[in-house]
């Protein structure tokens, strides 16, 4: 069995497992679209505002999938005997994490599609209003630091406390990063820290596509630095976890 085939099967069965959990589907995929429908669309009075909010809530939807799928998924998985059983099977290193990345990508796509469909149905947004190539590249590339943050949380926090911790990180980062409302509408104190948060940088990456202006390099570098920090931390935490669980 080659690596790609095994990766495909692991991803396929993980996706089936997740699809059959209504709470997961509702909270990760439907919740951002509903939130957008209830709170985003009524505030979008101009064509620019609807594009801006659609991009913001697309970021919010991807954040919801990657953060929860990696943090909660990894934290709960590593404490099950099924995980140890998988490790006893003839397989390749990294295949379990690899399948999580693929299913994260698939579910993120559904979540973004939900936000876009909501925008197309309930506002005047047209397909042609979106720069699809840049939108798709940036929405997924910009999510990498959050996937890595999810891995860090999943490796670090135990299964009993991961849900409140992940929720706290998710809600605070989404709000303070300006994904629910324009950064200029945030409270003054939050406005001061907002530019340093990865969610704000992610939002800026997308809003510059919406406004058709170049992205300020500090946001691109900022996201890169966050990605590097979370990558370093996740490698360290994975090794630490391996040391604890398998020694």
């Amino acid at each position: 069995m080659n690596y790609l085939k095994q990766l495909y099967y692991h991803s396929y069965f993980l996706a089936i497992e997740l699809c059959r959990q209504p709470m997961y589907v509702v909270s990760s995929i439907l919740f951002p679209s509903m939130f957008f429908w209830f709170f985003g669309i009524p505030n979008a009075k101009t064509p620019d505002a609807i594009i801006f909010l659609t991009y913001s809530f697309s970021c919010f939807s991807v954040l919801s999938v990657v953060l929860f799928q990696f943090s909660v998924g990894i934290s709960q998985e590593k404490e099950t005997s099924w995980y140890f059983y998988l490790r006893s099977l003839p397989s390749y290193r990294g295949i379990i994490l690899g399948s999580r990345i693929i299913s994260g990508f698939i579910f993120s796509s559904f979540a973004v599609a939900g936000v876009l469909c909501t925008a197309f149905i309930f506002s005047d947004l047209k397909l042609a209003d979106i720069d699809w190539v840049l939108f798709l590249i940036r929405i997924f590339a910009g999510a990498i630091p959050f996937a890595l943050l999810g891995i860090c949380l999943g490796q670090w926090v135990g299964s009993k406390t991961i849900l409140p911790v992940a929720n706290l990180v998710y809600l605070v980062l989404s709000f303070a990063g300006g994904l629910w409302m324009p950064p200029s509408a945030l409270p003054t104190a939050v406005q001061k820290i907002s530019p340093y948060l990865p969610t704000r940088m992610y939002g800026e990456l997308m809003w510059s596509v919406a406004s058709k202006i170049p992205t300020e390099s500090r946001y691109v570098y900022g996201l890169g630095i966050y990605a590097a920090i979370f990558l370093f931390l996740s490698i360290w935490l994975i090794k630490r976890e391996e040391q604890i669980s398998f020694s």
Binding site: F13, E17, T80, S81, W82
Partner: peptide, 8 residues
Amino acid sequence: ELSFPPHL
């Protein structure tokens, strides 16, 4: 301690 993915 056997535990299979509960939804599969």
